[in-house]
Nucleic acid binder design. Structure first.
Lengths: 338, 338
DNA sequence: GACCGGAATGTGAACGTACACAAGCAACGA
DNA sequence: TCGTTGCTTGTGTACGTTCACATTCCGGTC
């Protein structure tokens, strides 16, 4: 009950115990080349005995390298972003980096600025931006971040600082699949207007429709949630003037399917539905969902890899990952007109 | 193309510009009481003009306070933990703290130790543990962490260092609901053996059954995934000797429902199903899922609040949050025996 | 008018590490 | 034998900040 505020052991304590100079200890810690094996061992033993841990703050101060990668996220807990964060954490750790996370409280400029300020104050060496709103990207460009950064959003809009799955291609893939099945009246339930991915998927949808000379319909702007998919579905299904739905993500697809059943429509008999993301649950929806798979872990890994390359002075090519159509049972040919 | 390695402005640069001593600047930054309003303003202006940012590393070095809370997570991207992390981040930020995240690569001791080492090297002032495996908790106790920490797992097993939803009560709630509907043959699809929450929910299930003098069945140990729920379901349903299923989480419930349909059983007509967590999608399953809701954000907030209290020398009471049953359409009275 | 006390500001450390440079030591060839 | 070389180790200093202490300033009081 009297911890007596004991100072943590430092490099000099280790040196004293090992009978060497503090600099020798430093060399051992940094794996300097020319250190006699015996002294190195002696130092390591001393470190072990005394329970020494390098002080990151002191290191960061003198090297002005924090060995930290900042991650800027939105406040949501979606499967995709979260999976990417985990991958980022792993990749960073393997490279000897740590990650620190900041989420933006709202979509407003001050909030975005505050988050970036916080990351910069922590002297992060690089930043991964997962907040997928257009406004965030604008803010970032405006604030001229001095460290390498990368956004996990679509390349066209993110400029050359993005690393992502090609969302436009994904939107095309989904829509083309429906067209190939024979659908001509295809609806799109999009994400919010401000979202880069939503826009890109919508673009893919529009591209595919126009390539197929099909009627373009104004997409519904949703909020990614199953709830929205459900209520929008109830509304849309009052007029059954379409036979297929491309939902901007799996959650909205789920909600929409729910609405279909509630409206007495069978999926896929009366209505084909395609989602986006391929969350693990999608294979067990009723019916199992046809969707577009994104390789989220891969995105995270590649993002870190690119940033590390830049940190080492290299030039990184910011390429895109192609999404993949996963056909399950929620899509089929349109019902024959009677 | 020639950045010329310019040093970031420091406290002395600000002082020079404002015509005061560096200590005065420091006082302004730390909101010291006796600073004349006019000088304070002058310093703030200088800070603004020169674009000064306090160097966290230097601060941490001299104060030996990192103002960082470490979060130890498992490698998965589940809805619950993720939601809590976001809440933690918010709560921490509001209190002037940052968070850094480390995930354990595997469930083995070395991996757990490495993760905790990393957090300690970063000199985190407190730790939130979300990795819910029993072994992680054991490792933590063994490694005698010197900073306050808290686990978001069940209190009984986590000792007095936990802050969680009462999982046993949740398990009881779910099971009792089925009993109240008239079910007597109730199956439980549990989480993995090593998981604290899985064990607690199972305990709640067993308690409720024994209170109701009902036959106890050996729970199936799953892995939380919808896939497992599906395949286990297909297997279990070969013998239709039960009329209700309490699944350890919503994902497994979803997979199990999928198996029901595939086996020609109707939910809830032939089989009632209860989940756990109330993920946002649960309301849109087919049928909408009866489940036990956990207030994940609240857990995260309270955890941070407790840690901060301890950091300020106070004594914190580690209480529990009660879960809540959400009745939807996946449960009903058992089919009448013919 | 000198003195006093509190408010406001300034000066010298110290935190723990890495870098630049210097110095010791052995082995080697001339 | 001695200078040279390369490996190994040691000494001073700087990083940017806060803390403890010292000093100055100012208005009020006797």
């Amino acid at each position: 009950m009297e911890p007596e505020k004991v100072r943590a052991p430092n490099i000099r304590d280790v040196a004293r115990l090992a009978g060497v100079s503090y600099q020798t200890v430093s060399r051992v810690l940094n794996e300097h080349a020319s250190i006699r094996e015996s002294t190195k061992q002696r130092v390591l033993d001393a470190i072990d005995e005394i329970g020494y841990r390098p002080n990151q703050a002191a290191r960061a101060l003198v090297t002005s390298r924090s060995r930290t990668i900042g991650v800027l996220t939105a406040q949501n807990a979606d499967y995709g972003p979260t999976t990417s964060v985990t991958a980022i954490e792993h990749a960073a750790r393997d490279a000897g980096y740590r990650i620190t996370i900041t989420s933006i409280a709202s979509n407003e400029y001050p909030s975005i600025k505050a988050a970036l300020d916080q990351l910069q104050m922590q002297a992060v060496e690089a930043i991964v931006v997962i907040a997928p709103q257009v406004r965030v990207l604008e803010a970032i460009r405006e604030l001229d971040i001095t460290v390498p950064y990368i956004t996990l959003q679509n390349a066209d809009l993110g400029g050359d600082r993005s690393m992502s799955v090609d969302q436009v291609a994904g939107g095309r893939l989904a829509t083309q699949h429906l067209i190939d099945l024979g659908h001509t009246e295809i609806m799109h339930l999009s994400g919010p207007q401000d979202w880069i991915e939503a826009e890109a998927r919508m673009q893919g949808y529009l591209d595919a429709l126009s390539d197929g000379d099909l009627r373009t319909r104004a997409p519904i702007l949703g909020d990614w949630s199953a709830h929205f998919g459900y209520y929008a579905g109830l509304e849309l299904l009052r007029f059954r003037d379409f036979t297929a739905m491309f939902a901007g993500n799996d959650q909205m697809a789920l909600g929409f399917i729910h609405a279909c059943w509630d409206s007495g429509l069978s999926v896929p008999g009366d209505m084909s539905v395609v989602g986006f993301d391929d969350i693990p649950e999608a294979a067990h929806f009723y019916p199992p969902l046809t969707t577009v798979r994104q390789n989220f872990p891969e995105i995270g890994r590649r993002a870190v890899s690119l940033l590390l390359t830049e940190l080492q002075g290299g030039t990184a090519t910011h390429d895109q990952i192609m999404p993949e159509l996963v056909v399950r049972r929620s899509t089929t040919a349109p019902p024959r007109r009677s």
